[in-house]
């Protein structure tokens, strides 16, 4: 450790490299698979073409699934960010027992196995007529995204010093003005980080969506889920590639924001 021999360091480096390759490389397999010329997936493809991208774009079902996903993700993000940011601000003012209990409640959707949440929400959504609607699925996804917003905004709030607030109050600013001019600019990176995380949580989510989406409102992951089990055509790889591209873009945005803001864990 302090002066570990060369063979040990080499062993650690090589095995770490192999594990990292195992973590990252298999994910990329869908990208070449999506450029198949054949009507079934071969890897590496015998011949390359973009025909499955055309098939994806010209198929109304896939297009509709993409829009349904975006629609649901926007609802989920708005609900999670609004309720989660307010909750983090409220939690920040609490101390002791009530803070512990409420934190537990806000993080609970992360701890309860998703299959359990999915089944419970599905049952209640059926009873109140929200099953199969974008609103129902959006609310369910907001549930899963809420903990990430509370955590992200909560961490950002720790960077806001009490003294700044007192100084602002001493200079005659009211509570709303203090929030708008001192607190909000400082927690903005946390809110945006939470929003990005909420969006990707909803956009990627399958388990709840498989139950709640219904026929008319299939999201992209639900359509992929069904297609994998029915057919194994490269058009599924196209959809999966699109999801990877979107995730990478959002990941990059979040990283840039965290660099420009303070230290933001992702």
């Amino acid at each position: 450790m302090s002066k570990s021999p060369l063979w040990l360091r080499l062993l650690a480096q090589i095995s770490a490299g192999l594990v990292l390759a195992f973590l990252c490389l298999p994910i990329l397999a869908v990208i070449p698979a999506s450029f198949n010329q054949a009507s079934f997936i071969t890897l590496p493809p015998v011949a390359y073409s973009g025909r499955w991208y055309e098939a994806f774009i010209s198929d109304p079902e896939w297009r509709q699934a993409l829009f349904a996903s975006l629609h649901v993700a926007v609802i989920a993000t708005i609900v999670a960010v609004v309720t989660g940011t307010a909750a983090a601000l409220g939690l920040h003012r609490l101390t002791g027992r009530s803070r512990g209990i409420l934190t537990g409640l806000f993080l609970a959707p992360m701890i309860v196995p998703v299959i359990v949440t999915a089944v419970a929400v599905y049952r209640s959504a059926l009873d109140v007529g929200l099953s199969g609607t974008p609103l129902g699925l959006g609310l369910a996804h907001a549930l899963l995204a809420l903990p990430f917003v509370v955590i992200n905004v909560g961490i950002a709030l720790r960077g806001v010093e009490e003294n700044w607030l007192r100084a602002a109050a001493g200079l005659g600013a009211g509570p709303w003005r203090i929030f708008r001019t001192v607190t909000l600019p400082n927690i903005a990176p946390g809110i945006v980080g939470g929003a990005i995380f909420s969006f990707i949580t909803s956009f990627d989510e399958v388990v709840v969506a498989v139950f709640l989406a219904g026929y008319a409102n299939k999201t992209l992951p639900v359509k992929i889920w069904e297609s994998i089990r029915l057919e194994f055509t490269p058009v599924v790889a196209v959809a999966a590639t699109l999801m990877i591209v979107l995730a990478i873009v959002l990941f990059a945005v979040a990283q840039l924001l965290s660099k420009s803001g303070k230290k933001q864990p992702i």
Partner: peptide, 16 residues
């Protein structure tokens, strides 16, 4: 990085 990629996509990759 893998955290950001959908579990469904990662599973599909393994199927291939």
């Amino acid at each position: 990085f893998p955290f950001w990629i959908s579990v469904l996509v990662r599973t599909f990759s393994w199927m291939i």
